[in-house]
Amino acid sequence: MNNTIFILGVGAFFLMMIGLYGVLTNRNVFRLILGLGLMETGVNLFIVGASYWKGGKPPILGTVFETKAVDSYADPVPQALVLTSIVIGLGVTALALALMVRLKETTKSIDIIETKEEEVNE
């Protein structure tokens, strides 16, 4: 097994675990969001790592790397996936933070646990 892949894999795993730990042990919404962010980063790292191979070139034709052989390119799909996933993650985080602000506004707290009987929606 390749050293780099190992490091990427272990790093991704630990990032995810740290994030998971954060999600499991906190009830503060902000920290929960942070934990989720960490997990997402971890998993993105994992995807990128999965497509790594030593000596792989960026899959761009006719650039400074000047490789013609398609065989020597790194797989471009995971990178596209990661990009998408980062964008989605951003969206989710932004929405989550917005919700957090709403929560703070309405209940003066950013604790996820229900504190009292809450009003209902029709």
């Binding site: 998971l20 999600v23 989720l36 989605i88 209940t107 996820i112 809450e118 009003e119 929606n121």
Partner: peptide, 23 residues
């Protein structure tokens, strides 16, 4: 009100974990 926000946050947290798993 807060119930909706909290419900949404709960859904979001679980669903985010799910999406991490899916990814």
């Amino acid at each position: 009100g807060a119930a909706g926000v909290r419900g949404a946050l709960k859904y979001m947290i679980v669903a985010s974990l799910a999406s991490v798993a899916y990814l």
